[in-house]
Computed example of a mutant assay.
Amino acid sequence: MSTNAYIKYITQQIVQYFNLSKRERKEKRLHRKEDKEPTVSHWFGIVPFALSMFIRKIKKRKQMS
């Protein structure tokens, strides 16, 4: 991609962003946040989830005793 094409693309993206209303920008931002997976699972996979389930199970057993 040439420099001119890249600058043109960036300019178009900025103009599109500023043409949206403030409410639309907020909604778009919220949708992006909702679609993201949690950082812990992104970086470490399913291991943290498995550990949290295991810990909950142990705590539940202790409460029942």
Rank of each mutant, 00 (worst) to 15 (best):
F18H: 14
F18L: 14
N19E: 15
N19P: 00
L20H: 12
L20K: 15
S21P: 02
S21A: 05
K22T: 15
K22N: 13
R23N: 10
R23A: 13
E24I: 01
E24S: 04
R25W: 01
K26I: 13
K26Q: 12
E27R: 10
K28R: 11
K28Q: 11
K28S: 08
R29C: 05
R29D: 08
L30R: 11
L30A: 05
H31R: 11
H31L: 09
H31V: 04
R32N: 07
R32D: 04
K33H: 05
K33N: 07
E34L: 10
D35H: 06
D35F: 04
K36G: 01
E37Q: 09
P38D: 07
P38L: 02
P38S: 05
P38W: 01
T39S: 09
T39K: 10
T39I: 08
T39R: 09
T39Y: 07
V40P: 00
V40L: 10
S41I: 10
W43M: 11
F44A: 04
F44H: 04
F44L: 09
G45W: 00
G45C: 00
G45F: 02
G45V: 00
G45K: 00
I46Y: 10
I46K: 15
I46G: 12
P48E: 00
F49D: 15
F49R: 15
F49S: 15
A50T: 09
S52A: 14
S52W: 12
S52Y: 13
S52N: 13
S52G: 06
M53W: 14
M53S: 14
M53Q: 14
